[in-house]
Design a protein around this nucleic acid. Structure first.
Lengths: 205, 205
DNA sequence: CTATAATCGGAGTGGCGGTTCCGGTTCGAC
DNA sequence: GTCGAACCGGAACCGCCACTCCGATTATAG
């Protein structure tokens, strides 16, 4: 606590995080990255039940190293999930501006489906393990929700989507669609079905 | 295979299972039932990570008793899931005969959604825990798949559903829709979206 | 190149939960 | 009512895994 640092040796901090007391030694930074990747791979492949040792081994480091960077298993999850959510969030913003209002939402859903089908394991394994994403990465989830909200609003205004669907429904549907371990093909088709389901029917307001 | 039994002492067996060597003592049978209920309640409430002790306590018996009836935790899951799947399977058959071909599938999906939203926790907690339903309860899953298949075929022939959706897609979609812990209301609306998604559009082949 | 301090690695610790075991209890046949 | 067998309960056992600790290693300043 008290992010009180003898801030004098701070060369180029205050860049990525709120406070970066120390620049982190070169190899340490590399290991951190390595661990993150290994963790994502391991959890995706074996589920969150996978022991930390497995992650460490895959990363080619010792358990101690993992724990120095991420004090707890949950912290490791948070890091991974947050990164992924933020990534998606950026995508919503880009789509919100760069594409036709009626298409942006659908584009996003397809993209989401593509990613989720490959990595969903992590998400639901997490919440099945009692780790609640909503509270662990509250901020990121909120941002993403907001991003999708914007997209949905746009689409509704453009008349591409029915007015009676809610953001929560769309999210749950897409996440769910990609939840079951299916081919990517099946997954894509499910996304299309959802898209058709929320599309404005020929006759409507 | 080879349902070979010294079928002589079989009073009224060959009814529920393949073979019922012993009728099971009265209290034992009652306990078995009690355990089954407690397990379902416990797992639904706390997730599959819940310790067996919790189940035993809820059932008002000792752990030993639980293990005598179900030699392993997985066996307990199997018993519960199989029962539920078979139940749904029966429903498909009833609907396949009793209702208008175009409506049967939709009715089933709604019913499925209703049940799943209340009990889904168990299903996905299971497979997140590495217990694969498909292999654990292979027979039941297959039967249910077949049942839905029939319903889907009917609906297609009746012209109510597009020809390009597969059984696997429908199942995954519905299961997924109910997967996220949402209100029953949201869940029902998602089911409707899926229904709309697979429905034959105004203009089609 | 040397000194210093951060980092690394992995053996060790603690607790949790599935599974087993056995003395005491209860059911059911005679 | 009596006896034997099946059943019950829960203490004890065992392996697994998150997490800690410390001597060895290695990056960086001077």
């Amino acid at each position: 606590m008290t992010a009180e640092t003898t801030s004098e040796q701070v060369t180029k901090a205050a860049e990525g995080s709120v406070a970066t007391p120390r620049p982190l030694r070169a190899d340490a930074a590399k290991n951190r990255e390595r661990i993150l990747e290994a963790a994502e791979a391991t959890f995706t492949a074996e589920g969150v039940a996978a022991p930390i040792d497995a992650v460490a081994q895959r990363a080619g480091v010792g358990v101690g190293t993992v724990y120095r960077h991420f004090p707890t298993k949950e912290a490791l999850f948070e890091a991974i999930v947050t990164a992924r959510l933020d990534d998606l969030c950026v995508k919503t913003r880009r789509l919100a501006e760069g594409e036709r209002p009626g298409d942006a939402l659908f584009s996003f859903l397809r993209e989401f489906g593509r990613q989720a089908s490959a990595k969903q394991d992590l998400f639901d394994a997490m919440d099945a393990a009692g780790i609640d994403i909503k509270s662990t990465c509250a901020t990121s989830v909120e941002e993403l929700t907001h991003g999708i909200d914007v997209l949905l609003e746009q689409a509704k205004r453009a008349g591409a989507v029915r007015g009676d669907v809610a953001t929560a429904e769309v999210m749950a549907l897409i996440v769910g669609a990609c939840h079951s371990k299916q081919d990517d093909v099946v997954c894509q088709r499910m996304v299309e079905i959802v898209c058709d389901g929320i599309r404005t029917p020929a006759a409507a307001t």
